[in-house]
Design a protein around this nucleic acid. Structure first.
Length: 188
DNA sequence: CTTCGGATTGGCT
DNA sequence: GCCAATCCGAAGA
């Protein structure tokens, strides 16, 4: 991997569409991603500065930033830089194009379409967990999609209006958009 | 197809 | 203590 996947995450994110990401014996063609900029992006884990969890985001581009959410799920980002800047792109969904038998075993009961349709599902299908935080990412460019779309990022309460989610228009493996779930107010 | 609520743990204030 | 870059199953249209 090289220059094409490094730099401003807002520029890298659209280029990752149709690229093939391989991990744990499974390959996916990426169909949906989200850009997370540096400390100035209120939606980024890097917004409040460097901590033990997000250290990888502040390191060299080309590595995976993996984190654990909701007490049960993992999500994977490609760190893009630019160097010294904690930019990253969340890998939200893809189509399994190799190693599908292995992916099916990791996600029993799932249809092929749903194997990597969603950031936590993608991690499960590729066998990604915290042990993979900081490892080098294996990504090769693909043909530019005929059409792409962009819109608000999913599940965020901060900076929810920024259209920093990118996907391949009309692709069936793109996850369905859901706004951030409002938290139940106290006392009931 | 849609909406709704529960699961479950680590990170941060 | 509060909350999260989510998923799944159940129930309704």
């Amino acid at each position: 991997m090289a220059d094409w996947a490094e730099g401003d995450p807002l520029e890298v994110a659209p280029r990752l569409l149709n690229a093939v990401f391989t991990h744990g014996g499974v390959s996916v063609r990426l169909t949906e991603v989200e850009a997370y900029a540096g400390p100035e992006d209120p939606g980024s884990h890097a917004h409040r500065g460097r901590t033990e969890r997000n250290t990888v985001m502040f390191g060299a581009p080309g590595h995976l930033y993996v984190y654990f959410v909701y007490g049960m799920h993992h999500c994977a980002n490609l760190v893009t830089g630019p160097a010294g800047d904690p930019g990253a792109v969340l890998l939200r969904a893809g189509e399994v194009v190799d190693g599908i038998e292995l992916a099916r075993r990791r996600r029993p009961g799932s249809s092929d379409r749903d194997l990597a349709r969603g950031p936590a599902r993608l991690c499960r299908a590729l066998g990604i967990d915290l042990a993979d935080n900081g490892v080098r990412a294996e990504v090769v460019p693909g043909e530019a999609p005929l059409r792409t779309s962009s819109g608000p990022r999913v599940g965020l309460r901060q900076a929810a209006e920024r259209p920093w989610r990118f996907w391949v228009s009309g692709d069936p493996t793109v996850s369905t958009y859901r706004p951030a779930a409002p938290r139940r107010s106290a006392g009931r």
